[in-house]
Simulated assay, not measured.
Amino acid sequence: MTTYLWNPPPVQSLPVRGKAERLPINRLFFVGRNYHAHAVEMGKPVDKSVERPFYFTKSPQTLVESGATVAYPPETKNYHHEMELVLAIGAPGFRVAQEDAHELVYGYACGLDMTRRDLQLVARDKGRPWDLGKDVEASSVVSEVVPMQGRVLDKGELAMTVNGQPRQKSDLDKLIWNIREIIADLSLFYHLQPGDLIFTGTPEGVGALAEGDRIDGHIAGVGEISLHVGAAE
C-alpha cells in the first residue's frame, strides 16, 4: 500500500440527476471564443473558414457545485461571469470522427467559467499564458449532470441574470464549433476519458460582478445554475 506525507486531495465529483452515484471528474477543458458575438465583444472576431478551435484548461480543484457562495477572488478588480454549456465525456476516444462523436457523450450540465478579466487581458496582450486570469480557485461552477448518452445538443436557449437583471442570452445553435466538431478536434490533441468536462464557450454579455451579487442561469433541456459572490478574503 502506498503511503503519503499528507492526505492527497479528494476526488472531485458532481451529482448526476436520477442517480445516487456521483460523476468523478478527470480534466476540465474550455473552448475559447465559440460564439461570434462574444468574440466580437472581446475584440477578437473568429473566421471559422481559416481558424480552428482553441482551448485552455483549469485544475479540477477549481470545481464548485451550483448554489455555492465563493469569495470575490484576490488580485482582481474585474471579476467576470461566463455562462456555458458543459459536456460530460462518458467513453474514451482518440482521433474521433465527427460522425462518431456522439458515442463519447455521457450528458450535459450548466457551467460558469469565472474569470479575472483584467489579468486575462494583460496576459493575452503580452502573449503570456492565461492561468492567473482563468485557473482561479473556485472558478469552475457546474450544476448537476443530466445523463443524455449518445445525444448531441444543437439548440436550446442559454440565459443568465445577475441580481435578477438579464446579462447573457443566446442559443446553442449559435456555437461556432458545434458539439461534434469540438469532440473531434479536441480528441486530436488528447485521449479523451470518462469524467473529462468540456466547457463549450460563452455567448455575449459577459460582465463584471461585485461582492454580494447572485447569478442565476438556465439552459433549455439541461437545467439551472446559481452562484453567490461573497466578500473578498
Score class of each variant (00 low, 15 high):
residue 5 L to I: 13
residue 179 I to Q: 15
residue 86 V to A: 12
residue 42 M to Y: 10
residue 76 T to N: 05
residue 179 I to S: 05
residue 123 A to N: 15
residue 16 V to S: 09
residue 97 A to G: 11
residue 108 Y to R: 01
residue 211 E to H: 04
residue 115 T to W: 06
residue 185 D to Y: 08
residue 21 E to T: 09
residue 74 P to G: 08
residue 23 L to P: 06
residue 12 Q to R: 12
residue 182 I to H: 11
residue 118 D to Y: 07
residue 107 G to L: 06
residue 40 V to N: 08
residue 178 N to S: 11
residue 157 E to C: 15
residue 1 M to D: 10
residue 189 F to S: 13
residue 224 E to A: 09
residue 171 D to W: 06
residue 131 D to I: 15
residue 1 M to R: 04
residue 28 L to G: 02
residue 145 V to S: 09
residue 172 L to W: 11
residue 192 L to H: 07
residue 50 V to D: 04
residue 211 E to I: 05
residue 128 R to F: 13
residue 19 K to C: 13
residue 126 K to H: 14
residue 104 L to P: 10
residue 176 I to W: 03
residue 13 S to G: 00
residue 203 P to T: 03
residue 128 R to Y: 13
residue 146 V to N: 00
residue 127 G to N: 14
residue 84 E to N: 04
residue 29 F to Q: 05
residue 163 N to F: 13
residue 26 N to Y: 03
residue 59 S to E: 06
residue 182 I to V: 15
residue 17 R to M: 08
residue 33 R to T: 11
residue 89 I to Y: 01
residue 205 G to R: 01
residue 164 G to Y: 05
residue 122 V to A: 12
residue 75 E to D: 12
residue 120 Q to Y: 10
residue 135 D to S: 15
residue 58 K to S: 01
residue 82 E to H: 06
residue 203 P to L: 06
residue 54 F to V: 14
residue 177 W to P: 00
residue 120 Q to K: 10
residue 172 L to N: 05
residue 121 L to Y: 02
residue 199 F to Q: 03
residue 106 Y to D: 11
residue 215 I to T: 06
residue 24 P to C: 03
residue 79 Y to M: 00
residue 138 A to P: 00
residue 199 F to G: 02
residue 149 Q to L: 00
residue 165 Q to M: 10
residue 187 S to N: 03
residue 42 M to T: 08
residue 168 Q to S: 13
residue 8 P to D: 08
residue 5 L to R: 06
